[in-house]
Design a protein around this nucleic acid. Structure first.
Lengths: 296, 296
DNA sequence: TATTGCTTTTTAACATTTTATCATGCAAAC
DNA sequence: GTTTGCATGATAAAATGTTAAAAAGCAATA
């Protein structure tokens, strides 16, 4: 009935801020300073600090302000999760797309029908539908109703997405503006080695997907061309939804990660053309193997 | 205060339908049949026919329905224009983006401020802002207000867009699924020849832009991969806004069209690799020459 | 029997209102 | 002098209300 409360996401941003700066326990956390850093006013910052005080992360000294109570590494709280406070809209979004994919949704539905089905107020539903539309899952029909597209759930669309990725990513490596981002490379390498060292069996599928798509997005990001990056992010958003429905063949993950590391090596050795070709084959190979479970 | 009236766009769709089928004067136009073809109910179709009757395009015989009064080719009415009834939302959208590009808009504005500036109700403004956001011109800030991005109006972003286009288009030609669409080729060829035959001096810039971007979209469309097409359409939407602000160097248009025709020839001769390389050079060459007028 | 013409019901665009939250200014405390 | 604490005003998210238009149903007509 009112504006969304920023205190939770703000708390997680404050914790990230503390970690970045490596602040020590006992240090003062001035509200205005944090507000400036996060580009907010003091109000939501104070609210966030209050919550953090309840969890024992910071300590309040009346009229003096908040002080860090724990070492950054020791903070273990739901608030520390960067995903904390992610919009609940996301949940409805996922539910609708899932229903669309599994064919539970009639091809054509009116807004009122959807409101009933998902128990949403019009504003909220519309916000979600707009997002779904912009991602290509649904289209508003002239007159009444929404049409859920069946095209994207076909095997062909899935392969098209891989063709597109293969093309965009391999071309990005060849751009004149491509330049290695050392810290990002190091981070990506660490992620892949974590998968190799047993993560491929242990990790949740969400984390696996995240690590791998982040690898590819990092690579393309090095080209410094936002059109390439945006295009890739866009496909990956769709891919995430499709692949969550597929079973992961975990036995293939180590090979995948080895190839990822190999690509980093090639690039660092300056063999961009080779890396580009290899990356392309790598992506198309993955497409041939994966079999998404999509409703007919 | 109510729903948008579909009668105008429906009329133009009906005229297109009549042309497609090559109906002769005197033929009956059953309302339900048209409604089915346009996937609407009879209500907006009847309203459209009524309007068309006022313009003398069709004739009403009481209790018998509407009958075509003119030959399809002789229909000359504002209703025949496919752009008729385009959403007025587009106008506000263009105005905001234009203000953003020319720097008339402060970098940070609240929604209320924008409502005042453009005289819009919140719902309408938000709809537009969402679109602007999804296209990368603006971003919602945590807390209050919107931030208009300056990144896209830089020279670098402009060149990045051309790099992206060059890559997407040239790769599309090389896809295994690429297949020539004869009628589309013929239409594109006709358009380019029209430009060569004096159109480059005569035509409005909107039509020139349309013909040329349609040429490129048609080419990529032949690959039958919606990810490629969508990506291109997306960049072209941005490009249109940027290039409307630039001066057109009309002396270069004939060469451009000749190159377009050459590309069609190469493809028809089966020389896809050559066509792909030439297309890439063609696009990058255009980028080097054009100088968009963008506010610092 | 198919199609129009009219009526009723449903739908969605827009305006308005409500309210929790954000931003801001100022006095008090350190 | 800097920073908190609190009060005041501004902002935007959601619910509600209103209304023109679209869909659906039905009787009348060719």
């Amino acid at each position: 009935m009112a504006r969304p409360n920023l205190s939770v996401p703000t708390a997680s941003r404050i914790i990230a801020h503390i970690r970045d700066r490596g602040l020590a326990p006992g240090e003062h956390l001035p509200a205005q300073g944090l507000a400036d850093a996060l580009r907010l006013s003091r109000a939501p910052v104070s609210a966030a600090l209050k919550r953090m005080a309840e969890e024992g992360i910071v300590r309040l000294e009346p009229n003096r302000g908040y002080f860090l109570a724990k070492a950054p590494d020791e903070i273990a709280s739901p608030l520390a999760d960067p995903a904390a406070g992610a919009e609940p809209e996301d949940e409805v979004y996922a539910r609708i797309v899932d229903d669309c994919l599994s064919g539970r949704l009639p091809e054509r539905v009116s807004e009122n029908e959807l409101m009933r089905l998902y128990g949403l107020a019009r504003t909220r539903l519309l916000k979600t539908l707009n997002r779904i539309q912009s991602e290509g899952w649904a289209d508003r029909r002239p007159g009444n109703g929404w049409e859920f597209l069946t095209g994207l759930r076909s095997r062909a669309a899935y392969e098209d997405a891989y063709q597109f990725r293969a093309s965009v990513e391999s071309q990005a490596l060849l751009l004149p503006s491509f330049a290695i981002d050392r810290p990002a490379f190091a981070e990506a390498r660490a992620g892949q080695e974590e998968i190799l060292a047993g993560g491929f069996e242990r990790m949740g599928r969400a984390r696996l997907f995240e690590l791998n798509s982040r690898f590819h997005e990092m690579l393309v990001g090095c080209a410094g061309n936002s059109f390439f990056t945006d295009a890739l992010v866009r496909v990956n958003r769709l891919r995430r939804l499709l692949e969550y429905r597929a079973t992961v063949d975990r036995s293939r993950l180590p090979l995948q990660s080895k190839e990822h590391l190999l690509i980093l090596d090639m690039i660092e050795a300056g063999e961009l053309a080779r890396a580009s070709a290899f990356l392309k084959a790598h992506i198309l190979g993955a497409s041939a193997i994966k079999s998404p479970i999509v409703a007919g």
